[in-house]
């Protein structure tokens, strides 16, 4: 089955965005570093399911996000702790905590699995939000691809700045394959570096929707039709509505 994002819409979508979606879905369906294809696709399905979860809606409305008791409405394809990560990551990401992260990990996820799932959540959110924003139907998920996860753990990954391990630019080694375009990349860029393939896949997608790292701090330059001030205003407001302090 070929992947066809943005079918039957009235807009001429930039070809690099169309290509990025096709490539991202193809990569998502392939075996990852810690998750096989079936589990990766189950994560993508759960991301979509989370958007209609009534328990998530109650959490979002609650004054204290961790005080409620209840059960997520899930697809039943994944462990409870994976469902918890996906649903809260989708529905209320601005009110997570380190203690919550440790609880999710203690529920039966490795740090590598956690980071790979986060990469899928973020990628699916970008793609589904773009298609929704342009009036297209959600892209049908691709079929699973047989194969084993690579199980590669970067030797330089360590917990330092964030809740999960990160490979700092000075700790990257050749077996990680290319990680950073510059040793000065921001921490948001380093966030998924514990799973290098996930990180590369995510940024290949994200850069086409925003701008690549080389242009981020060139505030007087716009490489898109939209102006840089317009772009940053939208970005800041979207982040603010998510209560993202970064």
């Amino acid at each position: 089955m070929s992947i066809k994002p943005f079918e039957n819409i009235n807009y001429d979508v930039r070809q690099d965005i169309v290509n990025a979606h096709i490539e991202a879905w193809e990569r998502l369906a392939a075996p990852g570093t810690w998750l096989d294809s079936e589990r990766r696709l189950a994560v993508a399905t759960e991301v979509r399911q989370a958007r209609s979860c009534n328990f998530c809606k109650k959490i979002k409305e609650a004054l204290s996000p961790h005080a409620l008791e209840g059960k997520h409405q899930s697809t039943g394809l994944l462990l409870d702790t994976e469902v918890e990560l996906i649903h809260r990551g989708v529905s209320d990401p601005g009110r997570l905590s380190e203690a919550w992260t440790q609880k999710v990990l203690a529920g039966g996820l490795t740090q590598g699995e956690y980071v790979e799932i986060v990469g899928i959540i973020a990628s699916v959110m970008i793609m589904d939000t773009t298609t929704m924003a342009l009036g297209a139907n959600e892209t049908k998920l691709p079929k699973k691809v047989f194969g084993k996860p690579a199980r590669y753990l970067p030797p330089g990954a360590k917990v330092k700045a964030a809740w999960l391990p990160i490979v700092e630019p000075e700790d990257a080694v050749e077996t990680d394959q290319p990680l950073y375009p510059s040793p000065k990349v921001g921490y948001i860029y380093r966030g998924l570096s514990m799973v290098p393939e996930t990180m590369r896949n995510y940024w290949a997608l994200a850069n086409t929707h925003y701008i690549s790292g080389e242009f981020v701090y060139q505030f007087d330059k716009s490489i898109r039709a939209i102006s840089r001030p317009q772009m940053e205003l939208m970005a800041a407001r979207v982040s603010g509505l998510h209560q993202c302090a970064y």
């Binding site: 930039r14 380190e98 970008i126 939000t129 999960l164 921490y187 994200a206 929707h209 982040s239 970064y246």
Partner: peptide
């Protein structure tokens, strides 16, 4: 057309960035 597509893309990109920052615990 082009700014409409760019605007949708930028807003969507930040639906990804915020989730990485807040689930990984990137220090603000």
């Amino acid at each position: 057309n082009d700014i409409t597509v760019d605007a949708a893309a930028v807003a969507s990109a930040f639906h990804g960035f915020v989730r990485i920052a807040d689930t990984i615990g990137i220090p603000y």
